[in-house]
């Protein structure tokens, strides 16, 4: 597979990332540019034997300013997985849909729109609610959405709960007057 990928690496401007799964011979990571993703995936599906879209999801690397899209495809004849990674600018999260290649990709895309705010123009029912009915906050799987804050603002904490820090408590009890506390 590796050689096959190397042959098309310039055609689809892909780079193999070996360090991600060095121990695995059945899993390969490859990075693709945004405009080459769909052609590359089409080639994988139609010509390279990667007929199974295992899943399609996003990872938010907010510190570096991008979403990593992961198209995981599988070749049933060799039982090989190929993870196609795409770095998508967080500021402009729009990318071509792949529902025409695998119809169920539409569900992944619908979910990713809802959870990360990633646009896949043309994907069926993309903007319909998937899991979150009536959600009007930040797409919640983005790293900057603070679940704890949200729950504190939205729900009532149970009253009467108070915990003590071991070291602080011992200090209060045992050496409130000593140097450290002044």
């Amino acid at each position: 597979m590796r050689t096959q990928l190397q042959q098309v690496s310039t055609r689809f401007s892909i780079t193999l990332i070996d360090e991600l799964a060095p121990e695995r011979d059945d899993l390969l990571f490859v990075q693709v540019e945004k405009d080459q993703a769909v052609p590359f995936l089409t080639w994988l599906q139609e010509l390279a034997g990667y007929t199974h879209l295992v899943f399609f999801t996003a990872v938010d690397f907010i510190e570096e300013g991008y979403f990593q899209l992961t198209y995981m495809v599988h070749d049933y004849s060799t039982h090989q997985d190929l993870a196609v990674l795409l770095k998508l600018d967080r500021e402009d999260p729009v990318v071509e849909s792949i529902h025409h290649l695998w119809p169920h990709a539409a569900t992944y895309q619908q979910e990713m729109y809802e959870m990360y705010g990633i646009e896949f123009p043309g994907s069926p029912r993309l903007h319909d609610d998937f899991v979150l009915e009536g959600w009007d906050d930040l797409p919640p799987m983005r790293r900057d959405f603070d679940t704890r804050q949200y729950s504190e603002d939205t729900y009532f904490p149970r009253g009467g709960r108070k915990s003590r820090d071991t070291a602080e408590y011992m200090k209060e009890q045992l050496y409130p007057g000593e140097a450290e506390t002044w």
């Binding site: 799964a21 695995r24 295992v54 990593q68």
Partner: peptide
């Protein structure tokens, strides 16, 4: 740091975890 995908055959088919 790293990424991996693992799958298993559950009663409904391919169950998998992708971990980053």
């Amino acid at each position: 740091a790293g990424q991996t995908y693992k799958r298993a055959e559950c009663t409904r088919g391919e169950y998998g975890f992708f971990m980053v």
